[in-house]
Design a protein around this nucleic acid. Structure first.
Length: 1068
RNA sequence: GGGCCAAUAGCUCAAUUAGGUUGAGCGCCACUCUGAUAAGGUGGAGGCUCUCGGUUCAAAUCCGAGUUGGCCCA
């Protein structure tokens, strides 16, 4: 790119971004940037791998944009950043998608298709999905190591999971066990609690009577899962709760029913009893040990009937005020709490339901029925046996499989666990080793979650995942004698078959066939695969290809920084901590930035399945990548959700357009004057800098300081706010506005060179500061400014540091005050009806404090120029401006009672009075004519108001809400002022006509001016030289064929015609 | 059902991290300006700071209860 090359008139994001993409390609910008920092201090970032399904949505886009801005920032700070992206490619979601594609309904279809084929299909599908994401992320301008992402399906990554698991096993944290788990009967696998999605469904709600064995009466229980009744093992009560025996009558028959006292009315109502009487009162404790007959004793012959079964026990999950009856049907073969209590009671576990949700042989009459389908039969059978008290339905939230939406069943199966409850203290300690932003996310939410976390069930009875590296003896099904393999090398050494550790694939179809024979025992692999959350949990070393590649682990691990959305507290933030602690005893990350979710403009959550979303591609189509990133990154990332907002996008585009215009404005002048930034540096023009140059440089220093501080507390949104404020308010609206005339100056001047050097420095540092956010426009501007002198890419620049030499707080405050005065002055001008083009003879600044006096007296010229005033008069706080007078405004509610029918007269006198100093005495004097001898004016009657002289308007000015004084504009006219005013009007119109003709700035013209009003014509004639110079009119003569227009200026008709001289000569 | 977070102008957010007269940007309306400007300037409309209680001389801010939304957990 050559320096100060021609650029587009209009900021066109799409063309610009395309150009920059090509440029990055041409010069290997990313690779060079990485190389540039290769000697820096290392910074280990770990990418939370997105799941490879679909394309990027707004949430992923926000996430990756945030990562990009921080990685670029850290690089500019000099760090050698690890930026390997990752993809989470295993797991049930992909399996179910592939099943859908292939039209499968259950596991049998997969078995018939062949495991190997199915795994291949899953791999192909995951690869396909990955391509879409890769393309999207690159298209967003995210710079990560796209050529070499970590993929959880690669052998070296899968091995990292094996290694971690095997470490946990070595530390005694792996066990196989019976647990009550959530099972998806369609997928035929356990699913994690956090994979269960709750939805409202209509379910049975039944009350069942259990006949007591050794005494009269019945226990009444309530359940929404009739299919668990066959597995009933005991009834639980709240030991301390109140229970009653109720003698109830229906259709002439009497029953003695036991329920919790707070519930008995509800229960009897449900049972439609005609009459009842409370006949016994008990505590839960009284009921302990009561025995009852199993309600399905005959229909389910294998029902629990061991020692202690079918009796009442205490349990802490019972609530006598909650749903149900206060007597809880407990089936340790199903419910998680029931299971725990059953284990405490040392009961054998009875679960007559298989992994597909169908009753086994143990299910007796119901064998072969799917549990939910059996509900109806069970209810009918209970009814037939006279055990049903009531049968209703209820709408409640019930768990469903996150992938296939099948209602889950709670059953007890054999699973493999990482017993993280054994290292709970260590986990909680390790939380302390990480810093979270925001802090509350760690100290409230995350700690609570970790405290309550149960053992981690890591086994899934599926295909597409990392196989458990566990081999057990053929003839045993406990975990007493087991072999846990930690890597491919060990695998190759110990298995009976010949395999090559370098090339072996570790998926299920391959490793299932491998056996190990040691000491005469043959071991076969446990057929399960890992819970997919385990895959990403090892990312902190998997990213480094550890253990296969151990060259960087010691230096880099643990991660310096991770960044994800708040749903990952239960997900990746947790799984990594769990695995890091189980395998290595340490937290695998140090700094955590937790952001929120992307919401719809109306605040709803985005949802792809419901088609409620804003597609990032549409955002790019409308406004471009830089704008989208800028919008996303201007949102607070710390835990709060972000509402998408098209207006906000448009605003960002406007800001970038402003930057573009600021950037392209000086280029033609710099080119013309052959400004060379390597020679004419800020340092070389230091002596010629004008106050505003120094001011904008001072503002630049403050901006850098503010941005750096914001970045250090992970508030990139505050940083970009500061930068945009600087660009838009300070550089564009003030500095450029003020230096334009210096740049128009045709003669070369020190002042012009100083302005060039200043603006050059400001722009160059601004794009460096902007580069992490809007990498495309920054690159284009940087390239144009530096040509061959800078780095090949702006992203290799160092993060601009504050230069104390240019910092100047006093000047910043001075200008802030002057700008406040200018703003108020503009207001006063408008009140006085005088446009800025027309000079005013003087502006009076009445300062409230010394600081204002200092600011004005240090820079009198600046105010004169900005307010187009011939003179600035300063009135210090202890003086009054002599030309002001005061009048009093009367309060009629006070005057009325005091003066009766003369009140109106007094009021008029007060309003018309003019006094030099506000005060009661003075005003009394002024209106003495209408007052009787004994009358006076009191405080309550009047309030004083200032009266400015004719032709003067005043407006108060202030800073940060504090009043600091008043500015008065004297807008009186003199011939000289009118002369300049009209001349300026002429100039502006000629300029507009030049623009109509699209003339170059340098183009000379011939001007023909006719003004009908003789007085005005004479006034304008006095400024002929000024006009000619400003509009570059070398000739004043009649123009026949040129551009001609008639104007109305302040009621005066002017006719202006002009033609370019070159054209005129050429046509001659 | 429980935990955490949020709620301030039509929209997006601030309000100096232990209370002291609610602000900005965008949008809207009117006027104005324009030789970098799909800009700029001036003015205007627009607020029971979600509700109800409490603490305090004083509450957007602190406390309690609730409502709505988001996330998490059951």
């Amino acid at each position: 790119m050559s320096r100060f090359a021609e650029v587009d008139d209009q900021y066109d994001p799409h063309e610009l971004e395309q150009r920059v993409f090509e440029y990055w390609d041409d010069v290997d910008a990313y690779e060079q940037t990485v190389e540039h920092r290769s000697d820096g201090e290392s910074f280990f970032f770990v990418d939370g791998p997105p799941y490879t399904s679909g394309s990027a949505h707004m949430g992923t886009t926000w996430n990756k944009s945030l990562k990009d801005v921080y990685l670029r920032f850290f690089r500019m700070q000099g760090y050698d950043v690890t930026d390997r992206p990752g993809y989470d490619m295993h797991g049930l979601p992909i399996e179910t998608r592939v099943e859908e594609r292939l039209g499968f309904e259950n596991k049998k279809d997969i078995e018939e298709f062949g495991e190997e084929n199915f795994i291949q299909e899953c791999k192909d599908y995951a690869d396909e999905q990955l391509e879409g994401l890769q393309a999207d992320f690159q298209d967003f301008g995210v710079w990560m190591d796209w050529d070499d992402p970590y993929r959880t399906v690669e052998p070296e990554y899968m091995e990292a999971a094996w290694w971690g698991f095997s470490n946990a096993a070595d530390r005694g944290l792996v066990e196989k066990g019976h647990r009550s788990i959530s099972q998806c009967p369609r997928c035929e696998t356990a699913i994690a609690n956090n994979e269960v999605e709750y939805e409202d469904v209509e379910d049975p709600s039944i009350y069942v009577k259990f006949d007591l064995e050794d005494r009269d009466g019945k226990l009444v229980i309530w359940t929404t899962t009739p299919w668990t009744i066959p597995a009933n093992t005991f009834v639980a009560v709240d030991e301390a709760g109140d229970y009653v025996g109720v003698r109830a009558e229906k259709d002439g028959e009497e029953e003695l029913l036991y329920v919790a006292e707070p519930k008995f009315e509800d229960v009897l109502k449900a049972g439609r009893y005609d009459d009842y009487e409370v006949v016994e009162e008990h505590t839960g404790e009284d009921l302990l040990g009561w025995a009852y007959d199993h309600p399905m004793a005959d229909r389910v012959p294998d029902h629990p009937d061991h020692e202690g079964a079918c009796q009442v026990y205490a349990a802490d999950y019972v609530d006598t005020h909650g749903d149900g009856t206060g007597l809880v049907h407990s089936a340790p073969g199903h419910g998680e709490e029931d299971f725990e209590r059953g284990r405490e009671l040392d009961f054998p576990i009875f679960c007559p339901v298989g992994s597909d949700g169908v009753y086994t042989e143990q299910g007796g009459d119901y064998e072969g029925q799917f549990v939910r389908d059996a509900n109806e039969d069970i209810i009918a059978d209970l009814e037939a046996d006279g055990d049903l008290l009531a049968s209703e339905t209820i709408s409640h939230s019930y768990g469903h499989c996150w992938r296939c939406d099948t209602g889950i069943v709670q059953i007890v199966t054999d699973q493999w666990f990482i017993t993280i409850t054994d290292v709970k203290d260590e986990l909680l300690d390790n939380i302390e080793d990480s810093e979270w932003h925001p802090e509350w996310a760690r100290d409230n939410r995350f700690r609570d979650f970790v405290e309550e976390a149960p053992d981690w069930n890591v086994s899934r009875q599926r295909y597409w995942g990392i196989p458990l590296p566990v081999w057990t003896p053929e003839d045993r099904d406990d975990d007493e004698d087991r072999i846990v393999i930690s890597d491919r090398e060990e695998l190759a050494e110990r298995v009976d078959q010949e395999i090559d550790s370098q090339t072996v694939d570790l998926h299920k179809d391959t490793v299932d066939e491998l056996t190990i024979t040691e000491d005469g025992t043959t071991y076969t692999r446990v057929p399960d695969v890992f819970d997919v959350w385990l895959d990403s949990s090892v990312a902190s070393w998997g990213t480094l290809n550890y253990p296969e590649d151990d060259s960087r682990f010691d230096e880099l691990w643990p991660a310096d920084f991770i960044l994800e959305a708040h749903d990952q507290t239960r997900g990746w933030f947790w799984s990594q901590l769990g695995m890091g602690t189980a395998a290595l005893g340490e937290s695998p990350y140090q700094e955590v930035l937790m952001h929120g979710h992307a919401l719809m403009p109306d605040g709803r959550a985005m949802s792809k399945s419901k088609d409620i979303l804003i597609d990032p591609h549409e955002a790019i189509d409308r406004h471009g990548r830089d704008v989208m990133r800028l919008f996303l990154l201007s949102n607070n990332p710390q835990g709060e959700d972000m509402r998408f907002d098209w207006d906000g996008m448009q605003t960002m585009e406007n800001h970038l357009r402003t930057l573009w215009n600021v950037f392209r404005f000086p280029l033609p002048y710099m080119r013309l004057d052959e400004f060379d930034p390597t020679e004419t540096t800020l340092e070389s023009v230091d002596d010629h800098l004008e106050p505003l140059d120094e001011w904008v440089l001072a503002r630049l220093q403050s901006t850098k300081a503010e941005m750096t501080a914001a970045f250090e507390e992970f508030r990139q949104d505050k940083a970009i706010d500061a930068l945009l404020e600087f660009v838009v308010e300070d550089v564009s609206r003030f500095y450029v506005q003020a230096v334009r005339e210096r740049m128009w100056d045709e003669a070369d001047s020190d002042s012009k060179q100083a302005a060039y050097a200043t603006l050059y420095r400001v722009l160059r540092e601004t794009v460096a500061l902007l580069a992490p956010y809007a990498p495309f426009i920054s690159e284009e501007i940087y390239g144009t400014l530096t040509g061959d002198d800078g780095h090949p890419t702006v992203h290799m620049e160092d993060w601009p540091a504050v230069e104390e030499y240019w910092a100047d707080e006093q000047l910043e405050t001075d200008v802030a005050l002057l700008r406040a005065i200018e703003e108020a002055g503009a207001n006063a001008r408008q009140q006085a009806g005088r446009k800025l083009r027309w000079p005013v003879p003087r502006v009076v600044v009445a300062a409230d404090d010394e600081r204002v006096v200092e600011a004005v007296s240090r820079h009198p010229g600046l105010l004169e120029e900005r307010l187009n005033a011939r003179e600035i008069e300063l009135v210090s706080p202890d003086e009054r401006w002599g030309e002001l007078s005061y009048s009093a405004e009367a309060d009629m509610s006070e005057l009325g009672p005091a003066f009766g029918d003369r009140a109106g007269q007094v009021m008029n006198a007060l309003n018309e009075a003019r006094i030099d100093e506000p005060g009661l005495e003075a005003i009394e004097d002024a209106v003495s004519d209408v007052l009787e001898d004994d009358e006076g004016i009191t405080d309550e009657m009047v309030s004083f108001v200032t009266q400015t002289p004719d032709g003067v308007a005043g407006t108060a000015f202030g800073l940060d809400g504090d009043d600091r004084g008043v500015v008065y504009v004297d807008a009186s006219l003199t011939d000289d002022i009118e002369s300049e005013g009209y001349a300026r009007e002429v100039i502006r119109r000629v300029q507009e006509m030049r623009k109509d003709l699209d003339l170059d700035v340098e183009e000379r013209i011939a001007l023909d001016l006719t003004i009908e009003d003789d007085r005005v014509a004479d006034l304008v004639a006095e400024r002929t030289d000024l006009i000619s110079e400003e509009v570059r009119a070398d000739e004043r003569r009649e123009v026949e064929d040129g551009h001609r227009k008639e104007w109305e200026v302040e009621g005066v008709t002017m006719e202006i015609a002009l033609e370019p001289l070159a054209a005129a000569e050429a046509s001659d």
